[in-house]
Write a protein that binds this DNA or RNA. Sequence first.
DNA 1: TTGGAAATATAGCATTGGCTACATTTCTGT
DNA 2: ACAGAAATGTAGCCAATGCTATATTTCCAA
Lengths: 149, 149
Amino acid sequence: MSRDELAPGPETTTETTDADRFTNARAIRSTALFEDYTELIADLTEEFGEARITDIARRLGVTHPTANKAVLRLKREGLAISRPYRGVFLTEAGAAMAREVKARHRLVVRLLIAVGVPPEAAEMDAEGIEHYVSETTLKAFEAYLGGRD
Amino acid sequence: MSRDELAPGPETTTETTDADRFTNARAIRSTALFEDYTELIADLTEEFGEARITDIARRLGVTHPTANKAVLRLKREGLAISRPYRGVFLTEAGAAMAREVKARHRLVVRLLIAVGVPPEAAEMDAEGIEHYVSETTLKAFEAYLGGRD
DNA sequence: TTGGAAATATAGCATTGGCTACATTTCTGT
DNA sequence: ACAGAAATGTAGCCAATGCTATATTTCCAA
């Protein structure tokens, strides 16, 4: 009945526990929002020369106070800058995050389509999946896609 | 400069907007926790005959008050039942969710491994990815895996 | 059987991320 | 040039999800 020493599996080597996986997933969840915002701000800046709160809010499907509050957090984290009543711009750190996220997004969509997921569903699901794809998995996706087209 | 009618793409048909995708991802994020808990409670119940708060907390890597509070939400949503100072059990609805989540989890891991992701990374990433895989994508994964082994 | 250890419950705090309502500033058309 | 429209900012509310600290209950072993 004692569940105390049941955890250690066969090998006593460095092992990834359930808790590790869940903790990892929680950590990712807390950065996912930043990734969405930086990517979107990069898109809007490219399209319009600046990213305005109203446009950010509309694209994300949230109200503008919500977008505004998120931008405050982005600024606090050094990912964006803005002046009152003006557009939002990414810092170098924010732009780097946006580039990285965009590359990951594209790769995830390409992989989903490659294994037979309809493009529409691939785009939809990638929006959530992309945040959880590790560097290792990304490399595997690249190898898989590279080796077949 | 007017960004108002830039949104409508080429076809005026039913179109999935960015906002739709983000709204979908947010909705999923809010059910992900329930999915993790029901799956875990099912596992523990199978292993030990009941799911205890302490075990739930340890496996998820959170403190027990956190697990307790989450279980209160599960009960409120009709996914679990429990009596004070006793183990937690799934309702039929909770058990159904657990079964569905577990099947999805296994399929995601299998697919990741099939495209070349190392098993350890596949397990890690699946913990987050699984929540975002739609029915359509799941079907595609099944077809892909079925057609190659 | 009873006292200490373990498990569970609860109170209270912080942050995130959503909202509505309202204030302020900027833009724009006449 | 200015009035109304649009955009932005801010205040305040709520629920979720984490935490620590402190009860309370149950379990187990001497």
